[in-house]
Structures are given as structure tokens and as C-alpha cells.
């Protein structure tokens, strides 16, 4: 769930939040659950599926609420999850750089 802002930023219309693409390399995951537990936006949950290692990798519940903080990327001991900015759509930040 996106957090409520107590006031609208002045440039809210212009600057859309960059969109996240969460990549999960399911077979690398050892199922520790760090990414799920410590995601500040609760974007991840444990999937029902078993991977090759017999572990339950995370799955994305709502990619649109990902704040691109990258905490899952940084905390994963297996390099099994990472988040990148989605190229293209509504990505003001990216356009400005170019």
C-alpha cells in the first residue's frame, strides 16, 4: 500500500516516481526470508513454490509500491534478488539524465 502523503509535493504532477523492476533468481534463493521480512514496503512474500534447492523463494505482491530502496538487493546473502529501475514508462528521473 502506498503511504499517504500529508501534503502533495508541488511537482507531483511532473515527477512521477521511478518504477521498479524486481528480479528474483529463484533457484539461487536459499529461503532465508530477509528480503521479505525487511522490505520497508512489504512488497514481497514467500511463494508457495519450491525451487531447485527445495526452498521457498520470495515473490512480488505489488511491484508498483516498491520504493526502489534496494534494501532487498543489499541484504540478500545469495545475490538472488535485485531491483532495478524500469526503463521507459513514466520515468522522469531517467529522462532528465539523458
Amino acid at each position: 500500500m502506498p503511504q499517504k502523503l500529508w501534503r502533495e509535493p508541488l511537482d507531483a504532477q511532473k515527477t512521477k516516481l521511478p518504477k521498479a523492476e524486481i528480479c528474483i533468481i529463484t533457484d539461487l534463493c536459499k529461503g532465508c526470508g530477509f528480503c521479505i521480512e525487511f522490505c520497508p514496503k512489504n512488497v514481497l512474500e514467500q511463494s508457495e513454490q519450491l525451487n531447485k534447492k527445495g526452498k521457498h523463494p520470495p515473490e512480488v505482491t505489488d511491484e508498483s509500491s516498491c520504493a526502489l530502496c534496494g534494501f532487498c538487493t543489499a541484504i540478500c546473502p545469495e545475490f538472488a534478488i535485485f531491483v532495478v529501475e524500469k526503463k521507459g514508462e513514466n520515468n522522469v528521473g531517467n529522462e532528465e539524465k539523458e
Binding site: L28, C32, A74, C76, P77, F79, V84
Partner: peptide, 28 residues
């Protein structure tokens, strides 16, 4: 495509550490 991929010897992954071991976080 992992942002740190080029720093890892991919052919040696996955590493030997147990599930939830902090060593992987340190490496990261």
C-alpha cells in the same frame, strides 16, 4: 544482470554458506 554480477566469480556460485548466514550479506 545483477548490479554486482561483474564482481563475482559466477562459475563458483552458489557459495557454500548456509541459509541465512551473514557471510553472504558481508560479501554483498
Amino acid at each position: 544482470k545483477h548490479p554486482l554480477a561483474k564482481y563475482l566469480r559466477q562459475e563458483r556460485m552458489p557459495h557454500i554458506w548456509c541459509e541465512g548466514c551473514g557471510n553472504g550479506i558481508l560479501l554483498n
